[in-house]
Design a binder for these strands. Structure first.
Lengths: 153, 153
DNA sequence: CTTATTTGGTTTCGTTTTGCAACCATTCTG
DNA sequence: CAGAATGGTTGCAAAACGAAACCAAATAAG
């Protein structure tokens, strides 16, 4: 009766979701991208229960998304920082944010801009090798040998 | 003691996760992008419990990510299809897939290629208006008035 | 040195969600 | 009409979640 395991479904999306697919993990990662590093700050900014936060941070560290760094300063002893793997979720988080903005309206007081130009970001899109935008209808799903992927049903 | 609500946190990412942020929803969407439309096929291909599948499909329909279409054929009475909003999650799913491939290796027998050229897709990236790639370090978080977003801590 | 405070956790307990299996109703097929 | 397929629903046990209480180490205050 354990939660279904997603890491052995032979699907990249599933194993990604196995690492960050719960309600909180991506929010923690997003918050970390905003600059939050300390336990109490995650707790206050997200309003997450302490035991859940603890559990999620441990899992993120386990999966190499974040690291726990010992900083010997006052009572603030640790910092949780994104790894390269964690920072690489920027695309996912941004795509998710923009999707929500497009379809649910911008309920967010916060906006992302290019640090250099100060301009808002371009929409995240899927592109082919030449840089042309692709929708889901413009792609094919193939197996290792390039044959079309057969779907049950 | 209900699950924390994410739709009123005043954060786009949170409200996106409120719609598709559980373990199964994005997998269902991904499967739909692969061509799956019927209840039984979702069940077989994902190995999801029937009551959970039912619940998730209802939620996805409620949130406008999918629609339930009545097709009067044999016992197969309904089809669940992606809406435009659902198809627009292609970026998110693809970014997630590529992230997993980069960091966990390709455990997937399936690959996405451009239908026209047959070539694999380009990596999904965040870009500025000029098309230059941006990492999380290249962006700033600002409020409505363009002032830097203040972080607790 | 002693006490209070901050930080980061763990424990406890009640509620909700999940997973599984069994059951049910409707629509075809034979 | 009997049987099968589809799309559910129900009931139950295990697990996860959420809130609050409790705990331990390291400072800081006095």
């Amino acid at each position: 009766m354990t939660r279904k395991r997603f890491d052995e479904m032979g699907c990249c999306v599933a194993s990604a979701l196995n690492e960050v697919g719960d309600w909180w993990s991506l929010l923690i990662v997003k918050q970390a991208m905003l600059g939050t590093r300390r336990y109490v700050d995650f707790q206050n900014s997200l309003g997450i229960a302490k035991n859940i936060l603890c559990n999620r941070l441990s899992r993120l560290v386990e999966n190499g998304v974040m690291v726990r760094v010992d900083v010997g300063e006052h009572g603030k002893r640790y910092e949780y920082r994104l790894t390269d793997k964690g920072r690489d979720l920027f695309t996912v988080v941004t795509a998710l944010r923009q999707w929500s903005e497009r379809w649910n309206g911008a309920q967010d007081s916060m906006q992302l801009v290019d640090r250099q130009t100060g301009e808002p970001l371009a929409p995240v899109i899927v592109q082919n090798q030449q840089g042309l935008p692709l929708t889901v209808r413009d792609v094919r799903f193939v197996d290792e040998e390039g044959k079309p992927f057969e779907e049950a049903g």
